[in-house]
């Protein structure tokens, strides 16, 4: 699994950070940043949830 984010589209709701804090973070501007773009097995369900929950559809999950 790989994950990409669109920082221009992000509205900083923080749903990704709340659900998968080991994969997503927010910078000082509140915009999403990736801690890793290759989530470990233990984080994959949370990353899928983050992709679904993101209100601005800025998180894309690639299930390679």
């Amino acid at each position: 699994m790989r994950v990409t984010v669109d920082r221009d589209q992000c509205v900083g709701a923080g749903q990704c950070v709340l659900n998968a804090p080991d994969v997503f973070d927010q910078d000082d501007d509140g915009v999403v940043v990736l801690v890793t773009d290759e989530p470990g097995v233990q984080d994959r369900d949370a990353v899928r949830a983050a992709g679904d929950l993101c209100p601005s559809r800025s998180v894309t999950v690639h299930e390679d």
Binding site: V11, G12, G14, G30, V31
Partner: peptide, 15 residues
């Protein structure tokens, strides 16, 4: 809308 939202986001981050 985005100009307002972007200014406010840092105030409401999870951290």
């Amino acid at each position: 809308h985005d100009r307002f939202r972007k200014v406010l986001i840092p105030e409401f981050t999870v951290r």
